[in-house]
Amino acid sequence: MPSRTSDIGPTDLLGRVAQAVRAVPDPEIPVITIEDLGVIREVERVGDGLRVTITPTYSGCPAMRAMEEAVLDVGRRAGVPVEVVTRLSPAWTTDWMSEQGRESLRRFGIAPPTGERAHAAAGGPVGLTLQARQVTCPLCGSPDTEEIARFGSTACKALRRCLACREPFDEFKTI
């Protein structure tokens, strides 16, 4: 779901600030912008300033607060009033991550989400067997990888290892 910028010329001050807002890096995975991550829903003109609507990734993700602060900081530095509004519905999904974002993750050594949601919003089946899901190694490209831990260094990642090149790597969980 691409985000929208309404009523702002691309080259005027607000347009440049809106661009800078979109380019704010994810505080925990700085190779991806919050636009590519898919958390920005809308950037709108409100009077002389901007209203930025974001949808959080995980309920408890500590990076959300840092993203909000970074967006507000862009406004402060440009002298433009910026407010950040949180929209919960529809819920964020990794389907909203851009192709460019996925490619940046891969180059950084994080396997991007696979595109099929692990659990459709409701009633998604949860298997009673140990899962065997194919994730490609972002380092050597081998599909021969295994899960080490279902919870990784941040809420959005799991830990895997490649059986071909033997390197461990993070996987961005598909939700």
Binding site: P56, Y58, S59, R87, L88, S89, P90, A91, W92, A118, H119, A121, A122, G124, V126, G127, L128, L130, R150, F151, K173, I175
Partner: peptide, 22 residues
């Protein structure tokens, strides 16, 4: 708001339930 929280949370708790199940 409650519906919005539920949309996000249902995915998270599905993962928790799966973890405990495993």
């Amino acid at each position: 708001t409650l519906a919005g929280v539920a949309q996000k949370a249902v995915k998270e708790v599905a993962y928790h339930r799966d973890h405990a199940t495993q």
